[in-house]
Protein backbone atom coordinates (compact mmCIF):
# COMPACT_ATOMS: atom_id res chain seq x y z
CA UNK A 1 0.00 0.00 0.00
CA UNK A 2 2.78 2.39 0.98
CA UNK A 3 4.58 1.53 -2.20
CA UNK A 4 1.47 2.16 -4.22
CA UNK A 5 0.85 5.61 -2.76
CA UNK A 6 4.47 6.43 -3.30
CA UNK A 7 4.25 5.37 -6.91
CA UNK A 8 1.09 7.39 -7.45
CA UNK A 9 2.67 10.41 -5.83
CA UNK A 10 5.76 10.02 -8.00
CA UNK A 11 3.64 9.69 -11.11
CA UNK A 12 1.66 12.78 -10.16
CA UNK A 13 4.89 14.66 -9.57
CA UNK A 14 6.23 13.59 -12.98
CA UNK A 15 2.97 14.52 -14.66
CA UNK A 16 2.97 17.89 -12.94
CA UNK A 17 6.53 18.40 -14.02
CA UNK A 18 5.65 17.56 -17.60
CA UNK A 19 2.66 19.90 -17.58
CA UNK A 20 4.79 22.65 -16.10
CA UNK A 21 7.45 22.00 -18.71
CA UNK A 22 4.83 22.07 -21.45
CA UNK A 23 3.48 25.33 -20.14
CA UNK A 24 6.92 26.82 -19.80
CA UNK A 25 8.63 25.19 -22.76
CA UNK A 26 5.71 23.99 -24.83
CA UNK A 27 5.71 24.35 -28.58
CA UNK A 28 6.41 27.98 -29.40
CA UNK A 29 4.65 27.23 -32.68
CA UNK A 30 1.36 26.92 -30.80
CA UNK A 31 1.81 30.12 -28.81
CA UNK A 32 -1.05 32.04 -30.38
CA UNK A 33 0.01 35.34 -28.87
CA UNK A 34 2.82 35.51 -31.43
CA UNK A 35 0.56 34.83 -34.45
CA UNK A 36 -0.54 38.40 -35.22
CA UNK A 37 3.07 39.54 -35.06
CA UNK A 38 4.32 36.75 -37.35
CA UNK A 39 1.51 37.21 -39.85
CA UNK A 40 1.99 40.98 -39.94
CA UNK A 41 5.70 40.74 -40.64
CA UNK A 42 5.24 37.82 -43.04
CA UNK A 43 2.80 39.79 -45.17
CA UNK A 44 5.20 42.73 -45.12
CA UNK A 45 8.14 40.51 -46.16
CA UNK A 46 6.15 38.79 -48.92
CA UNK A 47 4.92 42.17 -50.14
CA UNK A 48 8.48 43.49 -50.25
CA UNK A 49 9.73 40.43 -52.15
CA UNK A 50 6.78 40.60 -54.57
CA UNK A 51 7.46 44.29 -55.19
CA UNK A 52 11.15 43.68 -55.81
CA UNK A 53 10.43 40.81 -58.18
CA UNK A 54 7.64 42.35 -60.26
CA UNK A 55 9.17 45.83 -60.47
CA UNK A 56 12.84 45.04 -60.90
CA UNK A 57 14.04 41.46 -60.94
CA UNK A 58 11.58 39.62 -63.21
CA UNK A 59 11.48 42.21 -66.04
CA UNK A 60 15.24 42.56 -65.87
CA UNK A 61 15.97 38.82 -65.96
CA UNK A 62 13.37 38.28 -68.68
CA UNK A 63 15.10 41.05 -70.64
CA UNK A 64 18.51 39.50 -70.11
CA UNK A 65 17.27 36.08 -71.24
CA UNK A 66 15.54 37.58 -74.31
CA UNK A 67 18.69 39.55 -75.18
CA UNK A 68 20.78 36.44 -74.83
CA UNK A 69 18.42 34.40 -76.98
CA UNK A 70 18.48 37.19 -79.58
CA UNK A 71 22.26 37.41 -79.49
CA UNK A 72 22.60 33.66 -79.85
CA UNK A 73 20.15 33.50 -82.77
CA UNK A 74 21.89 36.47 -84.40
CA UNK A 75 25.28 34.91 -83.92
CA UNK A 76 24.11 31.60 -85.34
CA UNK A 77 22.65 33.38 -88.37
CA UNK A 78 25.85 35.34 -88.86
CA UNK A 79 27.84 32.13 -88.53
CA UNK A 80 25.59 30.51 -91.13
CA UNK A 81 26.20 33.42 -93.49
CA UNK A 82 29.92 33.31 -92.88
CA UNK A 83 29.82 29.60 -93.59
CA UNK A 84 28.05 30.25 -96.91
CA UNK A 85 30.59 32.93 -97.72
CA UNK A 86 33.40 30.57 -96.88
CA UNK A 87 31.87 27.95 -99.14
CA UNK A 88 31.65 30.46 -102.01
CA UNK A 89 35.19 31.54 -101.38
CA UNK A 90 36.30 27.95 -101.41
CA UNK A 91 34.54 27.34 -104.74
CA UNK A 92 36.07 30.51 -106.20
CA UNK A 93 39.46 29.45 -104.93
CA UNK A 94 39.10 26.00 -106.45
CA UNK A 95 37.99 27.53 -109.75
CA UNK A 96 40.86 29.99 -109.72
CA UNK A 97 43.24 27.17 -108.95
CA UNK A 98 41.89 25.06 -111.85
CA UNK A 99 42.05 28.07 -114.19
CA UNK A 100 45.57 28.83 -113.13
CA UNK A 101 46.55 25.25 -113.64
CA UNK A 102 44.99 25.19 -117.13
CA UNK A 103 46.65 28.50 -117.95
CA UNK A 104 49.93 27.17 -116.73
CA UNK A 105 49.55 24.06 -118.85
CA UNK A 106 48.77 26.22 -121.85
CA UNK A 107 51.74 28.48 -121.21
CA UNK A 108 53.96 25.48 -120.74
CA UNK A 109 52.78 23.97 -124.01
CA UNK A 110 53.20 27.27 -125.85
CA UNK A 111 56.61 27.84 -124.40
CA UNK A 112 57.61 24.33 -125.20
CA UNK A 113 56.45 24.78 -128.83
CA UNK A 114 58.25 28.12 -129.12
CA UNK A 115 61.40 26.68 -127.65
CA UNK A 116 61.15 23.71 -129.95
CA UNK A 117 60.75 26.02 -132.89
CA UNK A 118 63.77 28.09 -131.87
CA UNK A 119 65.69 24.96 -131.19
CA UNK A 120 64.83 23.50 -134.57
CA UNK A 121 65.78 26.70 -136.31
CA UNK A 122 69.02 26.94 -134.39
CA UNK A 123 69.78 23.29 -135.10
CA UNK A 124 69.05 23.75 -138.79
CA UNK A 125 71.22 26.83 -138.88
CA UNK A 126 73.97 25.05 -137.01
CA UNK A 127 73.68 22.11 -139.39
CA UNK A 128 73.94 24.48 -142.39
CA UNK A 129 76.91 26.22 -140.81
CA UNK A 130 78.54 22.94 -140.11
CA UNK A 131 77.89 21.79 -143.68
CA UNK A 132 79.41 25.05 -145.07
CA UNK A 133 82.40 24.79 -142.80
CA UNK A 134 82.92 21.17 -143.75
CA UNK A 135 82.81 22.06 -147.43
CA UNK A 136 85.22 24.92 -146.85
CA UNK A 137 87.49 22.69 -144.88
CA UNK A 138 87.37 20.06 -147.57
CA UNK A 139 88.37 22.63 -150.20
CA UNK A 140 91.16 23.80 -147.93
CA UNK A 141 92.29 20.26 -147.29
CA UNK A 142 92.28 19.56 -151.01
CA UNK A 143 94.31 22.70 -151.62
CA UNK A 144 96.70 21.74 -148.86
CA UNK A 145 96.96 18.27 -150.24
CA UNK A 146 97.61 19.59 -153.75
CA UNK A 147 100.09 22.09 -152.31
CA UNK A 148 101.79 19.25 -150.50
CA UNK A 149 102.16 17.15 -153.69
CA UNK A 150 103.70 20.05 -155.58
CA UNK A 151 106.00 20.73 -152.66
CA UNK A 152 107.03 17.10 -152.57
CA UNK A 153 107.82 17.20 -156.29
CA UNK A 154 109.83 20.41 -155.91
CA UNK A 155 111.67 19.09 -152.89
CA UNK A 156 112.28 15.77 -154.62
CA UNK A 157 113.53 17.52 -157.75
CA UNK A 158 115.77 19.82 -155.74
CA UNK A 159 117.04 16.89 -153.70
CA UNK A 160 117.61 14.79 -156.79
CA UNK A 161 119.43 17.66 -158.50
CA UNK A 162 121.49 18.19 -155.35
CA UNK A 163 122.32 14.48 -155.12
CA UNK A 164 123.21 14.28 -158.79
CA UNK A 165 125.42 17.34 -158.41
CA UNK A 166 126.96 15.94 -155.26
CA UNK A 167 127.81 12.68 -157.14
CA UNK A 168 129.65 14.70 -159.62
CA UNK A 169 127.21 14.54 -162.40
CA UNK A 170 125.66 17.36 -164.26
CA UNK A 171 122.01 17.54 -163.55
CA UNK A 172 119.79 18.01 -166.49
CA UNK A 173 116.93 19.90 -165.04
CA UNK A 174 114.21 18.75 -167.40
CA UNK A 175 115.32 15.10 -167.11
CA UNK A 176 115.27 15.24 -163.34
CA UNK A 177 111.91 16.87 -163.30
CA UNK A 178 110.48 14.29 -165.63
CA UNK A 179 111.99 11.42 -163.58
CA UNK A 180 110.72 12.80 -160.27
CA UNK A 181 107.33 13.51 -161.76
CA UNK A 182 107.19 9.95 -162.95
CA UNK A 183 108.29 8.55 -159.58
CA UNK A 184 105.96 10.77 -157.48
CA UNK A 185 102.99 9.91 -159.60
CA UNK A 186 103.75 6.28 -159.52
Amino acid sequence: MANETQAVEAAAAVAGHAAEAAEKGGMPQLDFSTFPNQIFWLLLALGAIYWLLTNIAIPRIAGILADRAGTITGDIEAAEQYKLKAKDAEAAYAKALADARAQAQKIIAETRAAIQKDLDAAAAKADADIGARVAQSEVKIAEIRAGALEAVQIVATDTATAIVTALGGKADTSAVTAAVGQRVKG
Binding site: F32, S33, T34, F35, P36, N37, I39, F40
Partner: peptide, 8 residues
Amino acid sequence: PISWYEFF
Protein backbone atom coordinates in the same frame (compact mmCIF):
# COMPACT_ATOMS: atom_id res chain seq x y z
CA PRO B 1 7.96 37.61 -25.04
CA ILE B 2 5.33 39.62 -26.88
CA SER B 3 1.58 39.94 -26.32
CA TRP B 4 -0.97 39.16 -28.99
CA TYR B 5 -1.70 42.83 -29.72
CA GLU B 6 1.98 43.72 -30.24
CA PHE B 7 1.97 42.68 -33.88
CA PHE B 8 4.08 45.66 -34.98
